[in-house]
């Protein structure tokens, strides 16, 4: 009883905020990770994250942060609570973006310079497989059933569907110029691939056995913004499958798309050169990394409105939120 009382008092006192969740933001040029408290939206810590940190993700239990240290050619690992560095993982050269399977065991890493996807075992810290893909692999999406990992190659302009059973490519789908990101819907029935220079998002229906069929394309148009600046990069779908958010790079906006009709409902003005997106675990907020204004924007997901921006390190690239 006394503990409960104390806890309540502490929670109400200024200076003792409830540490709800933490957002980890990789700062590509600053070589750091900024830690943002999602209750107060304050930066609580910043630490060295290796050279040119880009892709960032967390272990399923939220205890470890993985980051692609691109210029170090490895994946650095940090304790999410103490921020201490843990033993690194082999990644192959120039890792840019990766995706961790639901069990937390296998990490699928895009090696931008070597046209490879490297599969790394996070427990034994060894490379299990290297899968040759198209030129400049970047986007990595994992099907919710864990059977396929989709890699997008920026110069080849394909989405490669790699089986997680035998690491063989089962399907290749041509998309528009410079595909940056692949995102499955939570039910696994749709896949969204953003094309930065093509200015589109290709939407695919995914069959029961994982076979993709192109269903349509989403295009963007903002009054007063040149079409050339509408460059889709990061994307996230709400777990109810109703809304797709697409970061539009130098257009400084996040598009809100109705997944049912594939129509763009709104454009939310955020910071400059918006790259990647990340939800809080309750999906109440969506965070955007804005590389040129060195901040993140907090979007209220239900209201579809930007509510705050938080200054982080130099050239924020990716973001992951852990409890």
């Amino acid at each position: 009883m006394r503990h409960l009382f104390l806890a309540t008092v502490l929670a109400l006192l200024p200076g003792f905020p409830v540490m709800a969740e933490k957002a980890f933001v990789s700062n590509e040029r600053g070589n750091t990770i900024s830690v943002v408290d999602t209750a107060t939206w304050e930066v609580v810590h910043e630490f060295f994250a290796g050279n040119r940190p880009r892709g960032i993700t967390a272990s399923p239990d939220g205890t470890k942060i993985y980051v692609c240290a691109s210029d170090d050619s490895l994946v650095r690992v940090f304790d999410a609570n103490t921020y201490e560095e843990l033993p690194s993982l082999p990644s192959g050269p120039d890792p840019e973006l990766f995706v961790l399977e639901q069990t937390g065991k296998r990490l699928y890493i895009a090696n931008e310079d070597d046209n490879l996807v490297t599969v790394t075992d996070t427990e034994t810290r060894t490379v299990i497989a290297e899968v040759p893909v198209g030129v400049e692999p970047e986007g990595m999406g994992l099907s919710p059933d864990g059977k396929f990992v989709v890699n997008t190659s920026e110069t080849t302009n394909m989405a490669h569907f790699i089986s997680t059973d035998d690491y063989k490519i089962k399907h290749n789908v041509l998309v528009d110029q410079r595909p940056r990101y692949a995102q499955y819907s939570a039910d696994g029935k749709l896949l969204f691939v953003t094309s930065e220079i093509g200015g589109t998002v290709t939407v695919m229906d995914i069959a029961e056995d994982g076979t993709p069929t192109v269903k349509g394309k989403i295009t963007f148009e903002v009054a007063g913004v040149q079409d050339e600046w509408l460059q889709p990069v990061g994307a996230r779908v709400t777990s109810d499958g109703r809304r797709l958010f697409v970061a539009l790079g130098p257009a400084n906006r996040v598009a809100v798309v109705d997944v049912e009709t594939l129509e763009v409902l709104d454009y939310i003005l955020v910071g400059q050169r918006v790259w990647q997106l990340g939800f809080t675990s309750d999906e109440k907020y969506l965070l955007t990394t804005n590389g040129n204004s060195n901040d993140i924007t907090v979007i209220d997901v239900a209201k579809e409105k930007a509510i705050k921006s938080v200054q982080v390190g130099q050239q924020p690239w990716g973001v992951v939120v852990v409890k």
Binding site: V173, V175, T202, V214, G216, K217
Partner: peptide, 18 residues
């Protein structure tokens, strides 16, 4: 705001390896 629903064969070529 534009929506282009295009069938696979028409624009985005769908190519399985074989």
């Amino acid at each position: 705001m534009k929506l282009h629903t295009l069938f696979a064969a028409a624009v985005a070529l769908f190519l399985s390896t074989q």
